[in-house]
Amino acid sequence: MSCLTVDNLTLKIAERTLCQSLNLKIQTGENWGILGKNGTGKTTLLHTLAGIPLAGTTVNSHASIKLNNIPIEKIKASKLARQLGILLQDFQDVFPSTVLETALIGRHPHLKAWQWPDHEDIRMVNNLLEKMGLAGYQQRDITSLSGGERRRLGLATLLAQQTDILLLDEPVNHLDIAHQHQLLHYLTTPLFKQQHAIAMVMHDINLAKQYCDHILFIYDDGRTLAGKTKEIVTAKNLTDVYGYPITELTANAQSVFIAK
């Protein structure tokens, strides 16, 4: 059972307040969706929660971010990387590397300086690649992958890190509709949820509503609203958050939010 607790967090970037006095508790079994307009600080928040704040971010002095009741800044970087992992928004692939090698980098925090991945590591990574629909891609060079394939490789790399807490910055970005649902379905299967606490930045309201049990709204004036998906994901709240009229449609016993 892991728990990431945020108390009284105010984030600023270049004098601009991104979120004001945020309180949040993300625990194993929960799947949080973070929604908000562009530039409201969703990525900045995720990086700060991961203990790797972006350059120029300032955090108020009374704030505390704790992982299982220990302030994250007190946890050694290599130890933190075994407990908490983050999927970044994009990748810098300048140098060649195969798909298998790249996914194995996820094992880095678990290996000593002169330790090479063993058969167990390779078996696990191959398994994850298969789950992400990348079976048979092991020897491909990463620069030859499409955007969606690269994204799924990023997820396989993150899952190879085997952390209890997963912070995902737009996990379904670049993915086609089938892969979007396959991935989110995988992340929300009971067995997976039992072992992980997840927070993901999303842009698709309907996917967030379908797969996340909790939602954090970030407004562009720094206010935040956190709660259960069923209670707070309403057309009115969404209209407020995005500053654009959004309405709910119901058809075949399914409801979807669309822009008016």
Binding site: I52, L88, D93, I105
Partner: peptide, 9 residues
């Protein structure tokens, strides 16, 4: 593979 990525690991 990138500075942020390295920090995350």
């Amino acid at each position: 593979r990138g500075e942020q990525f390295a920090r995350s690991l």
